[in-house]
Design a protein around this nucleic acid. Structure first.
Length: 986
RNA sequence: GGGCUCGUAGCUUAGGCUGGUUGGAGCGCUCGGCUGAUAACCGAGAGGUCCGGAGUUCAAAUCUCCGCGGGCCCA
């Protein structure tokens, strides 16, 4: 039979991982691992699609290894786990990347360049870093099917998205309205909220207090405040808080004795002395009409210039009277819509005043502030003016101040689905749990309609056609329907500009129908993944078998991103939750706790981690760092430490085993020894392993990955390596056939193999490497990833034994402390140690007495009842272990003990010398020595012991003075005695 | 500005839900020991305003409130 392959003491993890990768590729291990579970219960996963137009960074790698861990685990637990990769390919970020490359900035420039060419570039750009993504994904060990991924620009995908929008349209949930969006007047484009967040600056704006004269009352003014005077041209209403107190005040002097109204809490805003004439609630002002400030702009669609009440009015700043301009503020727009007020838009799409405002026509709004203030002053409606410092958003591309500006937009009426969203959210398990009713639940509570359309180029075209004659809208739900209804040819590419050419016939009036020029928000694309990846409903089965998902995971920023868009789309169409468990991950910060970003230049290059420490070290670092929901301060040093502490220790446990198993030609298949026949150490480590397995599975099921990983690490480092193997070493060194040695081999072998399985989802490379060498198979490789996940054998858990061992380790600790206090090193044997404890503990200690004697290097262990009065002689050193346990160490020495101490020192030195000259473990040697009488006598009395320990065939006095390459000489000082030792291979 | 979350030794962290001996551990540091699997390990030591403040309580790292700082989302 095949022998275990021998290993080097220091592992080359990176090289091993690369070999494993090749092997997985060659042997299609991933495909086999999935296929082997066909017929098993499904565990459904949906991949949150990344965009491959930038390099993957550590955060992406984290989500990928977490996905991988859970999916490998579930697979090993017997579930059939399909893993379709996905790519998010549409959207503004892609367009911006292309604009940059083309050196253009405005929509006009794009149109001049040609939408066809532009979109072609977008399509190419999307996969610019595909190779890097695929490489990193494979390298980190994420098993996902990248050969047949879903791609959001695919015609099939687009068709499914169209179908879903038609469902929403049929339910009457798709409507056209206005949305106030941040708009860059220079780039002529709206900005996403993400882009807006990129450049907030503290700026000084004019702070103006404006008097609005109430109708019917002479010289009675409402005092309003604004920092954007140019928006006053679009004023439609003034808002007050319904229940706050407002006052009518008479200004004492310098201000013509006029009378103003403002919130009582904001009287500080007045510069003048005043007298309060009257107090009333904001509600009392409702519906009072006031005179327009400027008579220029047209007002359409409703009433205007009256006082309304609104809860959002605050008393933190201003006057408690808020100027409302629906064209320039989101809240303004909403409240006007609610109160059915009119709309006024005196500014064009480049941010210049239109001809509705002759004195300012053609002026850029921000530049008009000065002139507007002067105009107000002339009319006597300006109460006062000052400067105001606040943070205001700027265009991150060109640095222009952004304007908030009402644009036409298509909406999904999510507000009307609020209760359904909340009900579906109840069916979802959130990790961490606080998100469910915290961040996410609160967000759903205050949900707004989804502004779906984007006035852009590269995206899923909005599938709505409008009749140019009668204005009727029609939503196309499939390619087939499009072809049926089209009066001209339909391109096979559903994108702009081809789709823009398709003309339909209006069923009502026979007029021409043309498509709305917009594309849709790419979040809707990815939110459609559960069905669109299967081209539902055009291919039915696959979707039905894969919905809803059992598990998704992404980082915390996706709560209002993908986590929401999935729920929103699924609720609107199926009224079901699209996923049942969602794991939200923290972010990767740099070493100083600051977010990694390109602009700060602190993004860690993940490929160098792969090349230096390897994927397993990185994975283990992530899994043990802390709860997955917490942010991680990423440090390469931390990864190196994990490698040293955990991977090396695991490797060395394995290395120890194969090294001796090779020497002994141990064959695990030839032995079968029931656990109960093995010794206490064996039964203990097996019990510990079974306890561990229980804990690990429970923790993974709770998504407490760090708890599982840390428990395994503790087991490997402390229980297995530093206790079981260290304590059992001598059993492996026995040269002849021996039952106890077989027990040790078998136990260590079983634990290592089981550990490989337990650890396989965590560190898939190292476990594969070790497993394949341990589980020998001549014809083909078996993979650890094709194994079943281990389960606990409760009959092998011996709680009492685990307990006893704990007590033993405490006693050993105490004994060492006693030695340390008495200044007697461990190599010096001592006569006895006395343990005073309860009868119950005595039994436990007695069963493991050998271990204590050996660890403490004492000849005898005596037990005394705690109740009895143990009178220790003078030479006993006492140490308290716990309330009812004490340990007494006999520090008295006699000649024999001293001699043995010397001898053990000599053996230790010789072993060190063997190591110095790299002797094989099994090589025989000759020993030569020189020393004083005491040394000579000790050596003579313990010749057999020395020879046995050091594999010496000869032990003689005198070291040849002649230089020889064969002889290795070293001079030592043992307890202040000069000792010269020499060894030579025999 | 709002919501959520995190903040424990130089660094990484346990404990916190359920308040109760001197707040544990690892890395690093000092001293000593052990070592033919392990740049490993063991013993002792130095190192803590448990972010700050207030409150509840006989008792607060833990519960409550207000701040400060990091992160995310929203404005």
């Amino acid at each position: 039979m095949a022998q275990f392959k021998s290993e080097t003491q220091r592992a080359n993890f990176v090289k091993q991982e690369e070999e494993i990768l090749e092997q997985w590729d060659r042997e299609k291990t991933f495909e086999r691992s999935v296929d082997s579970r066909k017929g098993g219960e499904q565990f459904i996963f949906v991949e949150g699609p990344p965009t491959a137009n930038g390099l993957p960074h550590p955060g992406h790698v984290l989500t990928r290894v977490v996905k991988d861990l859970v999916l490998r685990y579930k697979t090993m637990r017997g579930f059939y786990v399909k893993r379709k990769a996905g790519w998010d390919t549409h959207g503004l970020p892609v367009e911006i990347e292309v604009e940059k490359n083309l050196g253009i900035k405005t929509k006009g420039e794009i149109e001049a360049y040609g939408i066809e060419k532009f979109n072609k570039k977008c399509k190419d750009s999307v996969f610019r870093y595909e190779k890097e993504w695929v490489t990193a994904t494979k390298r980190v060990g994420f098993w996902v099917d990248m050969d047949s991924p879903y791609i959001t620009f695919d015609t099939n995908y687009v068709e499914s998205v169209w179908w879903s929008l038609k469902e929403i349209w049929k339910k009457g949930l798709l409507y056209k309205g206005h949305k106030v969006v941040p708009f860059c007047p220079r780039c002529e484009t709206t900005l996403s909220s993400h882009e807006v967040a990129q450049d907030y600056r503290d700026v000084e704006d004019p702070s103006v207090y404006v008097k609005f004269k109430l109708k019917q009352d002479e010289e009675l003014y409402l005092l309003a405040w604004t920092t954007t005077p140019w928006t006053l041209l679009g004023n439609i209403a003034l808002a007050v808080h319904p229940s706050n107190t407002y006052v009518k005040v008479k200004l004492k002097d310098g201000a013509k004795g006029e009378i103003l109204i403002l919130a009582e809490a904001r009287l500080d805003a007045l510069d003048d002395e005043y007298e309060i004439l009257e107090r009333f609630k904001g509600k009392d002002l409702e519906d009072r009409e006031y005179e327009r400030l400027f008579e220029y702009a047209k007002v359409e669609g409703g009433e205007a210039h009256k006082v309304i009440t609104a809860e959002f009015v605050t008393l933190d700043e201003g006057t408690g009277i808020v100027h409302i301009a629906p064209a320039f503020g989101e809240v303004d727009y909403e409240v006007c819509r609610e109160k059915k007020l009119g709309f006024s838009q005196p500014v064009n799409s480049e941010g210049h005043f239109t001809d509705e405002v002759p004195p300012l026509e053609g002026m850029f709004v921000k530049d008009a502030d000065r002139q507007i203030i002067e105009m107000m002053e002339q009319r006597g409606v300006l109460y006062k003016e000052s400067k105001y410092l606040h943070s205001y958003p700027f265009c991150w591309r060109c640095g222009s101040p952004l304007l908030y500006y009402a644009r036409e937009s298509w909406f999904i009426a999510m507000k009307s689905l609020r209760d359904n969203l909340l009900a579906n959210n109840e069916k979802i398990n959130w990790y961490p749990a606080h998100l469910k009713h915290g961040r996410f639940g609160n967000f759903l509570d205050g949900i707004e309609d989804w502004a779906l359309s984007r006035e852009r180029f590269w995206g899923t075209p909005l599938n709505i056609w409008l009749c140019t004659e009668c204005g009727k809208d029609f939503c196309v739900g499939s390619i087939e329907e499009l072809k049926e209804r089209a009066t001209n040819t339909v391109s096979s590419d559903p994108h702009r500009p081809y789709i823009d050419e398709v003309v339909l016939r209006c069923e009502d009036c026979g007029g021409e129908m043309r498509r709305v020029k917009d594309v849709i928000d790419c979040w809707y694309d990815s939110g459609s993944a559960p069905f669109a990846q299967w081209h539902y409903p055009f291919e039915t089965d696959k979707f039905k078998q894969n919905f809803p998902a059992d598990f998704i995971t992404e980082a915390i920023d996706q709560t209002r991103g993908w986590f929401y868009s999935l729920l929103a789309v699924s609720t609107a169409i199926f009224d079901e939750p699209p996923y049942l468990n969602v794991l939200s991950l923290g972010h990767i910060l740099d070493e100083n706790g600051v977010k990694m970003s390109k602009s700060k230049g602190n993004v860690v290059d993940i490929t160098s981690i792969f090349d230096n420490e390897g994927a397993d070290a990185l994975r283990w670092y992530f899994f043990t760092a802390g709860p997955l929901s917490d942010d991680v301060r990423f440090s390469e040093q931390g990864i190196v430490e994990k490698q040293k502490k955990f991977l090396n220790t695991f490797w060395n446990s394995y290395f120890f085993f194969v090294t001796y198993a090779a020497i002994d030609e141990f064959n695990p298949k030839a032995k079968e020894i029931p656990v109960e026949k093995r010794n206490a150490m064996d039964r203990w480590i097996i019990s510990r392993w079974n306890t561990l397995t229980n804990e690990v599975i429970a923790a993974i099921e709770r998504f407490e990955i760090h708890v599982a990983a840390r428990k395994i690490e503790d087991f490997v480092v402390n229980d297995l390596s530093n206790w079981y193997i260290r304590r059992s070493r001598r059993r492996f060194w026995i040269q002849e056939e021996n039952f106890d040695k077989d027990c040790a081999y078998l136990t260590l072998y079983e634990v290592l193999v089981s550990l490989c399985k337990l650890l396989a989802p965590f560190v898939p490379f190292l476990t594969e490497h070790i497993y394949q060498n341990l589980v020998m198979s001549e014809d083909k490789h078996e993979s650890v990833h094709l194994c079943d996940y281990p389960s606990t054998d409760e009959t092998l858990i011996d709680a009492e034994l685990e307990d006893s061992m704990l007590l033993v380790s405490k006693l050993v600790e105490a004994g060492r402390r006693a030695r340390s206090d008495a200044g007697i090193k461990i190599r010096q044997p001592l006569k006895d140690v006395v343990v005073v404890c309860s009868a119950e503990k005595q039994d436990k200690v007695a069963s493991l007495a050998v271990i204590i004697k050996d660890e403490l290097n004492v000849r005898e262990l005596k037990l005394e009842d705690a109740k009895g009065e143990f009178a220790a002689a003078e030479e006993y050193k006492q140490i308290e272990v716990d309330e009812d346990t004490a340990l007494f160490l006999n520090t008295g020495l006699d000649k024999e003990l001293i001699e043995e101490g010397i001898v053990r020192d000599i053996v230790r030195r010789i072993q060190g010398m063997r190591k110095d000259i790299d002797l094989e473990y099994t090589a025989k040697i000759s020993i030569m020595y020189e020393g004083d009488e005491a040394v000579k006598e000790a050596i003579n009395n313990f010749t057999d012991y020395i020879c046995g320990e050091t594999l010496a065939v000869e032990l003689k006095e005198g070291i040849p003075s002649a230089e020889s390459d064969q002889i290795y000489v070293k001079n030592w000082k043992i307890d202040k005695k000069e000792v010269h030792l020499a060894i030579e291979a025999a």
